[in-house]
Design a protein around this nucleic acid. Structure first.
Length: 215
DNA sequence: ATCCCGAGGG
DNA sequence: CCCTCTGGAT
């Protein structure tokens, strides 16, 4: 990276002052379900299916007893619908049986749930448990790579390595803020295709500037 | 490395 | 047609 990550974050925090979630939810349980459904699909799509889902299954006990076919129908549009339906149902059962009906608040317990990897667990820790986490999704990884914070390996970007590299470049107190801001920048300007490099406020700090085909 | 899997953009 | 959209499990 050409400049300081902390200075880039200061700039982005002025560009994106509010730090809202893009997934609709009211409780940790609802966020857990929404995050699992968000794999490889847009949050807008998730938000279309979750109202009916949360209405039909308001808590882990209800979801654990859901009919698989009915559940698959409700989450169909999010893609990977068989896998996702099974994961959220099994996760709900585990939450009831092992965690007293409450979503657990540690990385280890969260990632023990089916369908919950480090990225999804990080979202829960940061949003519901006040934790600090480097949340590596497709947007975050792309932006971190373009800035020059991490490198691609044989198989492209490895989320674990991206997390390690960014964590090493930043005090832990800013991990979640960094996750939010790079993610937000990725979805609003630093697109995978035709990113808005010409109006990017942190272009001067970016190793990839200007990305070929940028506008 | 591969599979799961629908939807929209270019 | 190919890529991308807040990944995770095998």
């Amino acid at each position: 990276m050409r400049g300081s990550l902390e200075r880039a974050l200061d700039t982005l925090s002025r560009l994106y002052p509010e730090r809202k979630s893009f997934l609709d939810y009211e409780t940790p349980f609802q966020l857990l379900v929404a995050v699992v459904l968000s794999a490889q699909c847009t949050d807008a799509c998730v938000n279309e299916v979750t109202p009916a889902l949360f209405s039909a299954y308001p808590d882990p006990a209800a979801l654990a007893n859901a009919s698989p076919a009915e559940l698959e129908a409700l989450v169909f549009r999010t893609g990977f619908y068989r896998t996702k339906a099974r994961h959220i149902r099994e996760a709900a059962a585990i939450i009831v049986e092992r965690f007293g009906g409450k979503v657990p608040g540690t990385m280890e317990d969260l990632t023990s749930l089916p369908g919950v990897g480090r990225k999804s667990a990080g979202v829960l820790l940061a949003r519901c448990f006040g934790g600090q986490a480097i949340i590596v999704d497709t947007h975050f990884a792309r932006v971190a790579w373009r800035l020059g914070l991490t490198a691609k390996g044989k198989n492209g970007l490895n989320p674990i390595l991206v997390e390690r590299d960014v964590a090493a470049a930043l005090p832990k107190g800013r991990w979640t803020e960094c996750s939010d801001l790079l993610n937000r920048h990725g979805r609003e300007a630093c697109f995978a295709r035709k990113p808005r490099c010409l109006s990017c406020p942190i272009a001067a700090e970016c190793d990839a500037f200007p990305v070929p085909g940028a506008v």
